[in-house]
């Protein structure tokens, strides 16, 4: 199990993900979420979610708007910390370490858990500088051959290398939307993370670019554990191993809308034989 020291000051010597692989039957648990609730001020965004995310799998979060799936995703790399009023209760363990322990430094967490956002958000810098940003900030490498290798490998993994290898010093904003999103994936994996969080990574892309990203996710699964939030049920069915279905609970008194985790199972089970009626209604298109 990972020691808490690895997540506090300074980067640990080895990635946490490699410490597992004891039980061959069930993949190692990366995130163990127990009764997690998130509040924004008085408003409760998600209530008592419990699930386990497994290593080298793609876990999809699906559900209607406002069901808290993005909120939960942003707990995994402590991104909700950036919101002043956000408050988290319950337990969220990452390789056994409580991510919300007061000693845990969110910055260390984010170096191990990369994130890809809804809209491609490359920095208005060169393609090379975008990929090099994370490693440079983490002190993994400076300019030179080491960094060049990181940049090339990251872009290759993100299936972007062949398209940009001749113009690494061009501004990243000159790329197409799909290319920008793959650049953001390359940027996220350049810090050699353990997990990739993807928040509706294809919602701003056309179908062809979406297909490319989905293919890419299949390939990345061998190296990373991926959690993906998606509005697109077909996408969840196509790419994920496990699926969590979230729904919205409307409090009749206060009209507050709180997200709840309805069902979590293998993707096949969720789409072919869901145990909860609400899940069935959603995946068959009767609501949402």
């Amino acid at each position: 199990m990972a020691a808490i020291d690895d997540l506090t000051e300074g980067r640990g010597s080895e990635p946490l993900g490699e410490m597992a692989a004891e039980s061959p039957a069930m993949p190692e648990v990366v995130f163990d979420v127990e009764e997690l609730s998130v509040y924004y001020g008085e408003f409760q965004a998600i209530q008592d979610a419990s699930l386990k995310v497994h290593e080298n799998e793609i876990t999809a979060f699906i559900g209607p708007s406002g069901c808290g799936k993005t909120t939960l995703l942003r707990c995994f790399n402590r991104m909700n910390d950036l919101i002043e009023t956000a408050r988290v209760t319950g337990s969220l363990r990452y390789h056994g370490v409580d991510l919300y322990d007061s000693k845990v430094d969110a910055v260390e967490v984010r170096r191990r858990i990369g994130m890809v956002f809804q809209k491609p958000n490359p920095f208005p810098k060169s393609i090379r500088a975008n990929v090099a940003y994370g490693p440079r900030v983490a002190g993994l490498a400076k300019k030179g051959p080491v960094m060049d290798d990181i940049v090339e490998n990251s872009l290759r993994k993100a299936a972007l290398w062949d398209e940009v290898k001749d113009r690494l010093d061009d501004n990243a904003l000159g790329l197409s939307g799909g290319q920008q999103q793959r650049l953001c994936i390359a940027r996220a994996i350049a810090t050699d993370p353990d997990v990739l969080l993807m928040d509706e990574p294809c919602s701003a892309l056309d179908p062809i670019a979406t297909t490319r990203i989905e293919e890419l996710m299949h390939g990345l699964k061998d190296d990373y554990s991926i959690v993906v939030v998606t509005h697109n049920m077909q996408q969840a069915a196509r790419v994920s191993d496990r699926t969590a279905f979230f729904s919205v609970d409307v409090n009749p008194d206060s009209d507050n809308r709180t997200g709840i985790l309805v069902e979590y199972d293998s993707t096949q089970q969720i789409f072919s034989n869901p145990s909860d009626e609400r899940t069935e209604n959603y995946v068959t298109g009767r609501f949402g």
């Binding site: 991104m79 950036l82 984010r110 920095f123 208005p124 810090t191």
Partner: peptide
């Protein structure tokens, strides 16, 4: 852009 940077551990 700030989120992208924070997400990379900056």
């Amino acid at each position: 852009l700030r989120e992208a940077s924070a997400g990379l551990g900056a």
